[in-house]
Design a protein around this nucleic acid. Structure first.
Length: 518
RNA sequence: GUCCCCAUCGUCUAGCGGCCUAGGACACCACCCUUUCACGGUGGAUACAGGGGUUCAAAUCCCCUUGGGGACGCCA
């Protein structure tokens, strides 16, 4: 009986399942039929953070994946904090990460690039005012002449009464015609959105599924400040619609803002993009990543010698995973594999140790010409002079020797230092080796070998032979042979293989070094 | 306080009802390679927050608890 019921139910269950399937795939089919337009909209208040970089990367990848456009929009409506300098810094950071945009400020001269400009919100005031007027006329918004002090008093009273500090329309709302006269006469007033009906709004979030918000979660919120500058939720919604944005992938902190934005879209009859709210990247203490966690901006990582490719790949993986679990992915692979279905809705802790590993992987995979180009600024900064580096073959050899010891570009100076005569010194770590009675004998024999060597360069095979003769001459073998020689070459008992190191140095500098030991 | 989101090894994650005595990666430990260091190779330890359901079957679905986070600005 029970099995019969189960069997009879099957078609129904299958139907329900397939219906759900269809529903959940709807966003994807939308993205394939409609030209995808996504944006990254930072506010220029400092360097680009890794969280912002990840948002930018995801949007970039999504645009590329579906052959759409990636737009950079500058949200600089907060006059207090936004700076031109910050905008330029963030543009530099995005360029460094190779996340180029199709529309937005031109990276060369910051002029507008694309058909839907301006792309800096501070230059779109008339547009916002136009839409604010439409809201006003439709009764979806009103001028609010109340002062900060009055508003604060209202909020205080609400908090005391145990209610959320939401501002609602004043009892004696000024009629629009009169309000306009007063504003024209120079009176200051903000424009507030009027939340009239109480009902639920549902965000069909691409990352979190359906999220339901009651409209009374927000009060009448400000669209235009009394100084004429629009507020985030208002311009964000207007711009997303006007710039024909189809998908918005942004941080989770904006999830509840979406309610206000939905209200604006609805009141203005504008088409809403689809939203996907990404989880945060956290510090090791599971708090939102901030300055006290150390490096958090892309610029910090650049300075610390990380490769942009590695940083990109690493942040890609904190919040998204590839279908087959592979982690090192080329830009092309990232694009071809990218879908919003593989976002992780749980927050991710930023783990610099793994980034370090990934960076070393990328470092080693780089062609030597390219690696050298990236290393050079770090050597220069450390004040190293390595004339041999003019020779491409020498560079190739040196990089082969050193790159497995490097995790970041910033590790290069202390490695290449070994090749700069002016920086040579017997390091404290060599104290024990210095004290060995064998060491003097080894050094003497090594010096003799060097002196009798005709050429200024020593090949790997020549060095092997020289080493064998030192072994015989000094009558020492094992670590008591190798370590003193290494100290006489690089000033310390541990490090790169001698047969690789010695050919990188001239006979004259090797002689100088062994003399310093003796 | 109200509303919302989140919860698998230390960390990033796979998993979308049976292929799970839970897979991969980083880190860690051991061994191998190497007359040093690093690289590389092999192996190991380590996780479904707790409690209730639903189901023949639950890491996976539902509820509660706990914990973490976010929003409630004339910030973004």
């Amino acid at each position: 009986m029970k099995t019969t019921g189960f069997v009879l139910l099957w078609p129904l269950i299958a139907w329900v399942l397939s219906a759900q399937k269809f529903y959940s795939e709807a966003p994807l089919s939308a993205s394939t039929t409609k030209n995808v337009r996504v944006r990254f909209a930072p506010s220029p208040t400092g360097y680009l953070h890794v969280g912002g970089a990840r948002t930018a990367l995801y949007n970039f990848l999504y645009a590329k994946r579906f052959g759409g456009q990636f737009i950079l929009r500058v949200e600089d409506t907060d006059l207090e904090r936004s700076t031109e300098e910050s905008m330029r810094m963030q543009i530099e950071d995005l360029k460094w990460l190779d996340l180029g945009w199709d529309e937005g400020p031109n990276p060369a001269d910051y002029s507008d690039m694309g058909p839907y400009g301006p792309y800096r919100q501070s230059r779109r005031k008339e547009i916002y005012m136009d839409y604010a007027n439409r809201l006003l006329e439709a009764g979806h918004a009103y001028y609010d002449f109340r002062t900060d002090a009055e508003l604060d008093a209202i909020k205080d009273a609400l908090v005391k009464a145990g209610k959320p500090p939401q501002i609602d329309a004043p009892k004696d709302m000024v009629p629009l015609a009169e309000a306009r006269k007063r504003v024209a006469a120079g009176e200051q007033a903000a424009i507030r959105f009027h939340v009239k009906e109480k009902r639920d709004y549902v965000v069909q979030d691409l990352v979190r599924g359906d999220v339901r918000f009651p409209s009374d979660m927000v009060g009448d919120f400000v669209c235009i400040r009394s100084n004429g500058m629009p507020v985030y939720n208002f311009c964000c919604a207007i711009d997303d619609a006007l710039m024909k944005i189809t998908h918005v992938f942004r941080a989770e902190e904006h999830l509840s803002n979406t309610l206000r934005q939905m209200m604006i879209f609805e009141a203005l009859g504008l088409e809403s993009p689809r939203f996907g709210h990404l989880s945060f990247i956290l510090g090791s203490d599971k708090q939102k990543l901030s300055k006290r966690h150390g490096a958090t901006s892309c610029h910090d990582f650049k300075v610390k010698g990380y490769l942009p490719e590695a940083l990109n790949n690493f942040i890609l993986l904190s919040g998204w995973s590839s279908p087959d679990g592979r982690e090192i992915l080329s830009r092309e692979e990232q694009i071809s594999l990218f879908t919003h279905e593989r976002f992780n809705s749980a927050p991710a802790v930023f783990d610099e140790t793994k980034l370090l590993w990934m960076n070393s992987m990328y470092l080693r995979a780089l062609p030597h010409d390219e690696l050298w180009k990236r290393i050079e600024p770090f050597l220069k900064e450390a004040g190293l002079s390595i004339p041999q580096a003019q020779d491409a073959q020498w560079r190739d050899h040196a990089l082969t020797a050193f790159k497995t010891s490097m995790q970041t570009l910033a590790d290069a100076p202390k490695l290449f230092e070994a090749l700069d005569d002016s920086k040579f010194a017997v390091k404290p770590e060599a104290a024990e080796v210095k004290g060995w009675p064998e060491s003097q004998k080894v050094w003497a024999a090594w010096k003799a070998e060097l002196s009798s060597h005709a050429a200024n360069k020593i090949s790997e095979t020549e060095f092997a032979a020289m080493q064998d003769r030192v072994k015989e001459q000094a009558g020492v073998k094992g670590k008591h042979l190798f370590m003193p020689i290494r100290v006489a070459v690089i000033g310390q008992p541990h490090g790169t293989e001698l047969k690789i190191l010695v050919p990188l140095l001239d006979k004259s500098s090797l002689l100088k070094r062994v003399e310093m030991c003796l």
